[in-house]
Design a protein around this nucleic acid. Structure first.
Lengths: 188, 188
DNA sequence: CTGATGACCAAAAAAGTATTTTAGTCAGTT
DNA sequence: AACTGACTAAAATACTTTTTTGGTCATCAG
């Protein structure tokens, strides 16, 4: 049995349920049925434990996104599907929801860093796809980094920020809106 | 001398310099050279004092934006100029910067409410202009409320959020980007 | 009489202190 | 050699005391 993975699973479960700062190393060791010292054989500290879990999350997202690519030739179709996939993934991942909540409530610096680098990883992935789409002339020439950043942010705006003051938007409408504003543009 | 305005000016100065919660009513009365009780002849409490100041801010923004409209016929030109104006205005207004900082640092509920309603006021104004542009067929048919919301958010994303991890974007580039993504679209 | 005031007060915030919890270590066990 | 959990310093939390502050109102100046 891979003890490192065992510990990561236990920690991920506790982080998801209670958040980062409310999870103690004792609790993780209890859940993993492992001595507390054992954790420190694989992770140098609590922060690194969370970071490695998040690396896994990024990796899984990458896999989901890549699978979507294979099924769609054009960038626009792909983009549509990929973000739907990411939204679904995000919903499933209680961990990310919990961490976002904790960042808002307590501003835990470690959580800030970790979510920031998740965002960066997602943006970087989108960036590559955009650069590719530009080369293939599927979309206009534009700065891939800024474009990726704005696409990501627009999703967050529609999915998270809009519902602060309005009815949440259904997923397919979100995708339709992104397409309208980003791809087609408002020029008549 | 208008005592109400005197108090509002004093309060605005202190809020800008120290933020909402670090400003005491004693301090406001000192700056306004007025007895503390006098403040309560015009404002029922500290929160209302801030709210009325913010109402002024919204009103001034409105004036700036309306002046821009007169000078530009088409929505697209207008939009360009109007947001440039708003960015400039926002920069000048130390108050808004300070309040945003305070919201991030302490999450003061009053400040949250006040900034939220500033955002709403701006969005509502943009919404009217968009509805008008749609009627005139200057832009495609779209939901004016969502469109206004996204335009506003995109500006915030470009001006505030981008610089968290990258070089700040110059104002004219921000305007050019909004135009590229929002009006023209990425479709080739 | 009226608009203005600042001493006053309850309530909240801050500072200070005691107590508990916890991240990380390491001597000892298996 | 891999693992453990009692141990500790440091941090978080709970509790107490002190200070500050939003808001009131009896009094005052004009």
């Amino acid at each position: 049995m891979d003890r490192k993975q065992l510990i990561m699973d236990a920690a991920a479960q506790s982080f998801s349920q209670f958040g980062y700062k409310a999870t103690t190393m004792d609790q993780v060791s209890k859940i993993a049925r492992v001595g507390k010292g054992t954790i420190y054989l694989y992770f140098s500290n609590k922060e690194e434990l969370l970071q490695e879990i998040m690396n896994n999350v990024v990796h899984e997202m990458h896999v989901v996104a890549l699978k979507t690519i294979e099924e769609n030739q054009s960038f626009i179709d792909y983009f549509h599907e990929a973000v739907q996939g990411m939204l679904k993934f995000r919903e499933q991942h209680e961990l990310i929801i919990k961490l976002s909540q904790e960042l808002k409530d307590f501003g835990t610096p470690v959580v800030y860093e970790v979510l920031q680098s998740l965002e960066e990883a997602i943006c970087f992935f989108i960036e590559e796809k955009i650069a590719h789409a530009i080369k293939k002339k599927e979309i206009k020439d534009c700065d891939p980094k800024i474009t990726a950043f704005l696409m990501f942010k627009m999703y967050i705006n529609l999915v998270n920020d809009w519902k602060v003051r309005h009815q949440p938007l259904p997923k397919d409408q979100v995708a339709a809106l992104i397409n309208l504003y980003f791809i087609e543009g408002l020029a008549p």
